[in-house]
C-alpha cells in the first residue's frame, strides 16, 4: 500500500528568490517556523537539519538534500534524527516555487509519510506557510509561529 502524502499550496506576493531564501535563511525561519533554523550547505547529497535557533544541539528533523535548483525546486529527505537509518521512517519534502501572474506559487509536497508523522505535519504546514506568506507580504510573521512548538514541526 502506498504511504500517505500531504500537499499544501500557497500564493505569495514576493519574487521566487525571496520565497526560496526564506526557506533557508535562519533569520527568517526563526520568525515563522517556531524559532527554528534549517542548517546545511544546501548542496545535493549534503545533510541538513531543522534545529532550535538558540540551541543547535536540539535537532527536531534531519535528512539529506536530494535536489537543489534555486529558486524553483528544493527536495529534502525528512526524518526524526533518531530514525534517519530506518527507511520506513524517512519521508520526503518537495518545495516547488513557480511564478504565476506576478505572484509566486509555493507547493509543498510531503510524501512517503508514516501515520504518526502525517498527524503532526497536517497541523504544522498550514501554520508555518500561512505565517511565511504574512511575513513576506507585511514584514512581520504571525506571532504564534515565532515561539517554539511543543513537538518538532
Amino acid at each position: 500500500m502506498p504511504k500517505p502524502g500531504y500537499i499544501y499550496v500557497v500564493y505569495i506576493q514576493a519574487p521566487c528568490e525571496k520565497v526560496w531564501d526564506a526557506l533557508i535563511d535562519p533569520e527568517m525561519t526563526k520568525d515563522y517556523w517556531g524559532r527554528h533554523r534549517n542548517s546545511s550547505d544546501w548542496k545535493a547529497g549534503s545533510r541538513w537539519q531543522h534545529e532550535d535557533y538558540d540551541d543547535a544541539s536540539q535537532v527536531a528533523v534531519a535528512g539529506m538534500v536530494i535536489e537543489n535548483d534555486r529558486p524553483h525546486r528544493l527536495v529534502l529527505s525528512w526524518a526524526r534524527p533518531e530514525s534517519l537509518d530506518d527507511p520506513d521512517k524517512v519521508s520526503k519534502v518537495t518545495f516547488t516555487i513557480e511564478e504565476q501572474f506576478g505572484s509566486t506559487k509555493l507547493t509543498v509536497v510531503h510524501s512517503e509519510l508514516d501515520n504518526e508523522m502525517l498527524r503532526g505535519i497536517g497541523a504544522g504546514w498550514p501554520a508555518i506557510l500561512s505565517s511565511l506568506k504574512t511575513m513576506l507580504e507585511t514584514g512581520a510573521s504571525l506571532p504564534m509561529t515565532r515561539r517554539r512548538w511543543k513537538s518538532g514541526n
Partner: peptide, 8 residues
Amino acid sequence: ESGRVLDI
C-alpha cells in the same frame, strides 16, 4: 492583512 489581493 495587507490590503493587497492576488492579481490572478
